[in-house]
Design a protein around this nucleic acid. Structure first.
Lengths: 105, 105
DNA sequence: ATTTTATATCGTATATTTACGAAATACGAA
DNA sequence: TTCGTATTTCGTAAATATACGATATAAAAT
């Protein structure tokens, strides 16, 4: 048998961490707020609001997609982004549960 | 005046992102769970549970301290870690509020 | 057919994160 | 004083993240 350190992290912890990572940059937090407020946004509007180069914003959008919270659809010639409600609900539940680990007194 | 991109991110978004970053690694999520469950832990116990080298665990503890969620006290020859309740409460509030940006239907 | 608009991708530079083992520190015990 | 235990810090390597401008692509407008 290998060392006892060989245990993996729990699925739950991995998921919480993944979601947290998606929110770990102010630009991505800001984008999520925009998307939530308007149901959907074209990249255009997002990029205008975020104080970073368009190519960088694009990268952040990719990260959000990769985390699964955001989806896009091609509406030529623009791309419409929106929150994936199902995934968001999931993520929110994981996070809410995690926040319960310590009660406020 | 500089370009309109020169705006900064909001304080709120920066704070959410900072706390999120603290929770963006499964090891740190696991540590927070341990601390919350037992009120406090010696480094020893934490390091035994986390499948990483002690020096790496120490680094993760430093990150949690840096984010302000965790505090330590020296009880020779050990170090006792605990969640900073005030900061945790704060973090939790920021997150709960953020999670409200989109309601579950 | 050319230009303009919208967006992604590429190439790249720099910074940060993550990880490890070895060495340092600090203390209590023998 | 020497030894053992607990923990951090150091040195360092490798991976990932962040940012930009330039270039590519695709469709719309002219």
């Amino acid at each position: 048998m290998a060392s006892p350190k060989r245990n993996k992290f729990s699925r739950e912890d991995i998921r919480v961490a993944r979601f947290a990572k998606a929110m770990s940059h102010p630009a991505r937090v800001a984008v999520l707020r925009m998307l939530a407020a308007k149901e959907a946004c074209y990249f255009n509007e997002i990029s205008k609001k975020i104080p970073l180069a368009g190519s960088t914003v694009s990268q952040h959008m990719y990260e959000l997609k990769r985390a699964g919270i955001v989806q896009d659809s091609y509406e030529p010639p623009r791309i419409k982004y929106s929150i994936d409600s199902r995934k968001w609900k999931q993520a929110r539940r994981y996070f809410r549960d995690f926040l319960k680990i310590k009660q406020g007194k």
